[in-house]
Design a protein around this nucleic acid. Structure first.
Lengths: 217, 217
DNA sequence: GTGCAACACGTACGCCGTACGTGGGTCAAG
DNA sequence: CTTGACCCACGTACGGCGTACGTGTTGCAC
């Protein structure tokens, strides 16, 4: 019956993601995306409800690329680490989009899939109900918070800048007033993010182990 | 020499915060704020560099209200808990602003003050340098992540809604596909946020204790 | 009184998201 | 083959935004 569609939702999503990656979140607009696709702005509304849904699409496009081992690890601790690291690695590949992921809560399919699988691992620590909720919030909060801390396009100044520039600026804070802040800014300038992430994860898993029920595997 | 100033930066900040609290982040615009203050839009540029700095001002206005005990607690664990809870309680009073706090990294004075004091507590667990950085990221990530999870104005659907509505929607997800997600959504609907926060904090502190150097107080 | 700096703010430009209307393409039914 | 219904493309236009620029106005220093 209809005229054949000119695009697919996937095309929209990946074009939008490219746009955001290349020129930043601010450059991601209906009009800019339409221009990139060689069409008029209103055409996009045949595929997407509006700006908001477009953003959701971009997030989904990022998260969808996360790949997890086909079968859960036998040890729930290892599984938690694997899932967390995989998710973090994935979103970190698109630093421009991180603020979007961080500021929203989404329920697209890949996010739910990740959540369900993480919950399965945490459940094996002997938790359920409220305890499971708390453990989940803790893990997700860490991942989100860590990603935000790293990608934070604007930080250590209203002016913004890349994360590295920002750290440099942090080191020049008044050391007599904020000695420890300067200390970690310095450490951060030298450090390897992935290593720091894993170290944090170890602390986190240690905490989860402490609160685990005896019957945990 | 000059004409007397019509406003103060503090006036701007609190008027902007009221605006955001009442009508949401989207309603926070230069023009709307100017109208609320009974002046023209361009007047604001005599006080603030632009939209970005206005947002920083709002964040600062929120964070500034956090109050901590005058003297640090003797036990660093208790101090970490106290600081974290105070910070969290403060920002959660302005749920509309949380996405802003979460998506940005700021270095206003109150935030640095909080950071320095938190770092002081964490340092007493025997950490320094990279370990201190990791511990700090972990704690801040948890607070940020938790606040985001709660306030997430839009969640469990591109349509958005209050956090409570969102949880209700979460409970109606396909239970055979995402059983654990439904489980925690249900638990969350019943639960007390503050209690959950403290429970998460306990897990977190347990993890920090595990990694602490022997000489910790 | 004169000059000048600090401030208020009107106007205007180029973006944005998107409501609305029109026209062209495609298939099903007659 | 014609007709009709429907979906899609997309031009136009409106109201909002951030803010560059220019002008007027104020109040102190000299």
């Amino acid at each position: 019956m209809p005229a054949p569609k000119k695009f697919s939702r996937d095309q929209l999503a990946s074009a939008a993601l490219e746009l955001a990656d290349e020129k930043g979140l601010d450059a991601l607009s209906m009009r800019a995306l339409a221009a990139r696709l060689g069409t008029g702005p209103m055409t996009l509304y045949n595929y997407v409800d509006g700006r908001d849904e477009l953003e959701s699409l971009v997030i989904e496009a990022v998260v969808r690329h996360a790949a997890y081992p086909p079968r859960p690890a036998a040890d729930w601790r290892e599984e938690v680490r694997t899932l967390a690291e995989s998710y973090w690695t994935t979103i970190r590949r698109h630093p421009q989009v991180v603020p979007l992921i961080v500021a929203r809560r989404t329920t697209d399919e890949p996010t739910l899939e990740f959540g369900e699988r993480m919950l399965e691992a945490l459940a094996r620590s002997g938790r359920s109900g409220r305890e499971l909720l708390v453990a989940f919030r803790l893990v997700v909060g860490f991942i989100i918070g860590f990603a935000q801390g790293e990608a934070g396009a604007q930080a250590f100044s209203p002016a913004g800048g890349t994360a590295d520039e920002v750290i440099q600026r942090g080191r020049t804070l008044p050391a007599e007033r904020y000695p420890r802040v300067v200390e970690i800014a310095t450490a951060s300038a030298r450090g390897d993010r992935a290593e720091e992430f894993r170290a944090g994860l170890d602390l986190l898993v240690a905490g989860l182990s402490a609160g685990a029920r005896p019957a945990s595997a």
